[in-house]
Design a protein around this nucleic acid. Sequence first.
DNA 1: CTATGTAGATGTTATTTGCATATATTATCA
DNA 2: TGATAATATATGCAAATAACATCTACATAG
Lengths: 144, 144
Amino acid sequence: MARGFCHRHGNERPCSCSMGNIYRYVEPVTLYLLKLKGRAYGYELGNYLREHALTDSEVDRAALYRTLRQLETNGFVTSEWDIGGGGPARRLYALTQAGMDHLAEWLVVLRQMAGAMHRFVDDADKLIEGDTKDLQTTASVENE
Amino acid sequence: MARGFCHRHGNERPCSCSMGNIYRYVEPVTLYLLKLKGRAYGYELGNYLREHALTDSEVDRAALYRTLRQLETNGFVTSEWDIGGGGPARRLYALTQAGMDHLAEWLVVLRQMAGAMHRFVDDADKLIEGDTKDLQTTASVENE
DNA sequence: CTATGTAGATGTTATTTGCATATATTATCA
DNA sequence: TGATAATATATGCAAATAACATCTACATAG
């Protein structure tokens, strides 16, 4: 639980990397990407994962592969080998109906969390108004 | 990573308890409560923690105590024993300036995360429109 | 004196993650 | 041809976290 600025993402603003480990929400984002792409393999999904990430923390490829296997165990995705294309064999994943429903469940949870987080930040902002230096302003000035 | 409805919080809606373990954000909420209450002891904070929680998951008292000690180690709070009042001795905590700044850092991070989460949910909602049963509607109907 | 509630702390175990590494196939280029 | 780079999946292990149970200690009600 070090201080908020991390070496990976620079010093413009506090970064979730350095606020203690925050879950990376690999599962919902993976389900979403699978729905978006129709069918895809792990390595490919790994390339889209970052731009849809919910935190600053990058998702480890190992975590993604493990998540996909777990999702399959739970019946949320199916997979089959794709030997055809160039390069090493790929395990093609696709969402099941259960997976679609599970994504919908995640959305209910995440909407709730986003709301709670937003309210918390607003409340806290009102509370500390003036008592701390404005981090964003300070940082953007430092960056000129 | 069981399905989304949990035994602790009933069946009205999917619950973060059952979506795999999601961090409980004990640290920022603790910092916020300390700022709000001025000075307080762990057991007391434990009673307010739930209503300010960012997830459905309840916070373990042990986790709260450990977080407070950790915050002290990092210089974000100070503590002293309060022997005076009836009952067992209480360890009274108070925020330091560094703790205030750290809370401000958390707010930057959480605001960012809340935004990302909100956008994610909106995007995904558009994507799955119609493909899944509407969980909230279904649940509220089931509950009549 | 026992039970209960308050208050804080610790130990054990399980899960999750990050990092390093293994393995295999194809592509590229000298 | 041989070296090596890129693609693709997977596993082992250490460290961090979390849940749950347990423990000490004090006060008060009955």
